[in-house]
Structures are given as C-alpha cells and as structure tokens.
C-alpha cells in the first residue's frame, strides 16, 4: 500500500543521497576531465580557457576548440610519469602479496582462537584503524630514520656497524603501506575463515589427509573470496596513496598520488594534475568495478544461502 505521501517520502529518501553523490562525487569528475584538456597559465585561476556564462556561442565554441590532449601526451612522453606509474603499480602489488603472507596466518589464528576471545581480537585489529592514519605513518619515521630506534637496536646488538638507510627508500614505503593496510586485509580474511566449517577439515583429516594437505585443499580454496576482497581493499587505495610515499619515501620516490599532489600544490599546474587524476581514475576504475561486481555477487549468494 503506497499512498501519495509514501511515494513522496520514498522519492526524498532515495533522491537526497543520490543528489548529494551526484553533485559532489560524479559531477566533479567531469570538471576534472575538462581541466585535464585545458592549458596551464600564469593567471588566476591558473588555467585557460576559462568558460564563462557571458560568453556568446561562438566564443564558447572557440574555447572548446582550444581544449586538447597536450597534457596526456606529456604524461606519456615524460619518463618521470611512466616511472611513477610503474613504481605505484609495483609497490601496490608487493604490498598486496606481503599482506596476504602476513595477514593470512594472523586471521587464521584469530579464527581458531577460543570463541570468547575472538571479538576482542577483532576489536584489537580494528582499533588502530580508528586512530589517525597520519600519526601511524609518522610513528615509523622515528623508528626507521638513520639515528632512529631500529638502527640503534641493530647497532647495540652488533648486527651492523653503519646505520642502514631505510627511511626515504622504497623499503620504507613498503613497510608503511603494509603497516597501514594490515587491518583491511585481516578483516575480510578473518570473516571468510571464521565462517569456515571446521567439520570439513575434520572430515579431511579423518579420511587420512595430513594437516597441511587438509589446509591446502580445504581451508585455502574456501577462504579465497576473503583473500580477493582483502586484495581489492588494499591494492586500489595503495595505487593512489599519497601520505605514505610522501613521509616515508622522501622526495626521490614518485608514486602517482604524490605526482598529482606535487603538480597541484608545488607546481600549481592544475591541468597536468587533472590529467594525472584522469589516468589514475581510468587505472583504478577496472579493479573498482570488478570488486563491486564481486561483492554484489557474494552478497547475493549469501542471501540465498541464508534463506535455505
């Protein structure tokens, strides 16, 4: 029974969030695209052409004709940007692999812990996520720098005589990424492993499979959705990460997120920064849509599974 008021209420219910996301999330991408096709200028605002409502039709057409792909050509031809792209990709991939290697044993142990301990363990994984990202990255500067804690400890134990250069290298970025994104990998993994039916493993061992074989043939395949979900959640934001490469990687390491930031804030080249954004957007769009389709299908399957 839907009265007219209910219909209007529903319209508002859907319309308001829709409108907000449309205006403040979808529409801005069009503005970025237009900016990416403009040219940088020494002016306020620092680009041209500037569209204006008072332009006549022909002036507007002239301005549209002035838009070009110059910035994208620059991105393609300048090795700096290609390097930034490759570095981002390599580090995001390495982070994902390392996180699976570190997160899997942790999530597995959490899922096998006594039931009353599990909520506490989950809360302990989530808690760092609630504390400031910036602060958690900052904490590593004090540890990794040449006169930092790690080098001090290594020197006192006599393992090294000269301080290791870790800060301002790719290794430092990798440590920071793994550290900051660990909860994003562990939680989906834990969710998949905790749901896993323990009797399946018992059945496998009863039938004579050694423990490692039961783990490899039963646990691992059944937890793959969790591995995939975690990988998406880590890989996509890591590609565009800014804070970690900026604070831990120093000025030599360029990642895409940092290139965008430098073009925008340091060089005040808004059009070029926008072109970097468009490229980054195109790159992450594929994984984002794949993940979305994957999650929708999983939710669908769960709903059906829950009903039966």
């Amino acid at each position: 029974m839907i009265g007219r008021d209910a219909g209007r209420g529903r319209f508002l219910l859907i319309g308001l969030p829709w409108l907000w996301l449309g205006v403040f999330f979808l529409l801005p991408f069009l503005v970025v695209l237009r900016m990416a096709l403009s040219d940088s200028a020494q002016a306020r605002p620092p680009y041209r052409p500037v569209f204006d409502l008072s332009d006549g039709l022909s002036a507007t057409l002239d301005k549209i004709a002035a838009l070009d792909l110059e910035n994208f050509r620059l991105l393609w031809e300048e090795p700096l940007y290609l390097d930034a792209f490759l570095t981002s990709f390599r580090l995001a991939a390495a982070t994902t692999v390392l996180l699976i290697l570190i997160g899997y044993p942790l999530a597995h142990a959490m899922a096998r812990a006594p039931a009353r301990l599990r909520p506490i363990l989950v809360a302990l994984v989530i808690l760092p996520f609630w504390t400031s990202f910036l602060i958690r990255v900052y904490a590593w500067i004090g540890i990794l720098k040449p006169e930092g804690l790690l080098n001090m400890m290594l020197r006192q134990t006599g393992l090294i005589s000269e301080p290791l250069e870790i800060l301002n290298t790719e290794a430092a970025i990798l440590i920071g990424l793994v550290y900051a994104y660990l909860p994003f990998m562990v939680l989906p993994l834990y969710a998949a492993l905790e749901r896993l039916d323990a009797t399946l493993i018992e059945a496998a061992t009863d039938l004579g499979a050694p423990r490692w074989k039961a783990f490899w043939l039963v646990t691992v395949p059944l937890s793959l959705p969790g591995v995939l979900a975690g990988s998406f959640l880590v890989f996509i934001p890591a590609l565009g990460e800014f804070v970690i490469p900026d604070l831990l990687g120093g000025s030599d390491t360029l990642m895409m997120g940092r290139s965008l930031w430098v073009e925008f804030f340091n060089n005040r080249d808004w059009p070029l920064a926008s072109a970097v954004a468009v490229v980054l957007l195109v790159i992450v769009m594929g994984p984002i849509m794949a993940h979305h389709a994957f999650e929708t299908r999983r939710a669908e399957a769960e709903r059906r599974g829950g009903r039966s």
Partner: peptide, 29 residues
C-alpha cells in the same frame, strides 16, 4: 528503483577511490 545499480556503485566507490582524486575533483568543482 531507477538507477539503483549506479546508486550502489556511487555509494561504494568513494571508499576505495584514492583520496587525491576525490580531493582534486571536489576542489575543481
């Protein structure tokens, strides 16, 4: 409802979207 698919996608995308993209695009808007 009309556009439910796009709506779900829009609600989900800002969570994984690299922040530099969201930030730059909002500023330009």
């Amino acid at each position: 409802f009309t556009g439910k698919g796009l709506f779900t996608g829009l609600l989900y995308a800002p969570i994984v979207m690299p922040e530099v993209i969201t930030g730059l695009s909002l500023l330009l808007l």
